[in-house]
Design a protein around this nucleic acid. Sequence first.
DNA 1: CCCCCCATGTAACATGTTACATGATTGA
DNA 2: TCAATCATGTAACATGTTACATGGGGGG
Lengths: 189, 189
Amino acid sequence: MNDRRPTLLEYALLGLANNQPRTGYAFRKVFEATPMAHYSSSPGSIYPALQRLDERGLLESSVGDGDTLRPKRVYTVTSEGVEALRAWVSQRVTREDVIWRPRELMLRFSFMGGLVDDDVSCTFLEQLAVELDGYARSLEEYRSAMPGHGPPHGVLAMEAGLANVRSMKTWAKNALRQFLPSQRSDGRG
Amino acid sequence: MNDRRPTLLEYALLGLANNQPRTGYAFRKVFEATPMAHYSSSPGSIYPALQRLDERGLLESSVGDGDTLRPKRVYTVTSEGVEALRAWVSQRVTREDVIWRPRELMLRFSFMGGLVDDDVSCTFLEQLAVELDGYARSLEEYRSAMPGHGPPHGVLAMEAGLANVRSMKTWAKNALRQFLPSQRSDGRG
DNA sequence: CCCCCCATGTAACATGTTACATGATTGA
DNA sequence: TCAATCATGTAACATGTTACATGGGGGG
């Protein structure tokens, strides 16, 4: 048996199934058509992943009217699956997440809707901003140690990374405003 | 024999070796310490990758004074390796690159220094800007089709993607100015 | 009737992860 | 001498990629 934590692909499937039950083919179409999640849409990755999630009890499948071979199989998330998803999105945002797994972070955020309370989204965005800030500072430090002579490619690539981190930070701060409990307390205008 | 094109990790090793010959351990240290390239620094990935590159003739290795077991092995890029690297960085920037492989793009750019003429960097940045622009437009279109009601997470995640693409575009346009052949032609001030 | 899209799956393969094993060198 | 760091590698395993195989249903 396989007790590892789910892959990113598996979490993506779980999150999509949580929005709406789908067939394997429908999952594949989402990965092909959607610009959001950058996962392979090949049958060789999707179907085995769905089978694994089924075996672990995070998804369950029901065949449609079944007298054909190759029955159409619809996957629905189980309560255990919902819990796994909730635990995943609610994890603390770490510096490592920001450095190594920014896509996973955005995937987590995008699955929060309807799954967790707004204060979880709020905490997520606050932690994200903090970690992005710290990372930006370490990048700046790193850059200042780079040689000013020679080809500028290294420094420029560095600056691309920095610009990226900063834009994400700006985004997080703006997004946060939509989740903060309303600022104006009921008294006064 | 394995004739596939090199992995991203292998290109990263090739590029680093092109800057300076290193031991396997030194490559690992770079991946641990550098914020730029997000690759695994585990021996289980690095050493086999170096062996593959050696077998394919893109790297060659020389052992230091060798009467010990476990000789220290220094990898140097071959002329064939340099050619492979040059071909890789010089490829046309496609929409798919921008959507699915932005990190690879930045890696390609950062290895251009000292490897190709400035007009290659120039072309790269121009193509990059064009493709980013097209991608941004398709993202905007996609976003405008999203539901305005319900949890805002999806729309926000979308906007994060957009902000990211736009910041990269701005970067590309700024970087381009450093590679454009000097605007003022020799006549007049 | 044929082709395309819907739909599900498997097999071979390469890569990367994790954990382990080993040995050399350097400084406290 | 002991520990840390330098240094190289392998084995088991899971995942993902590519290519292939199969079959139903609808439209031209």
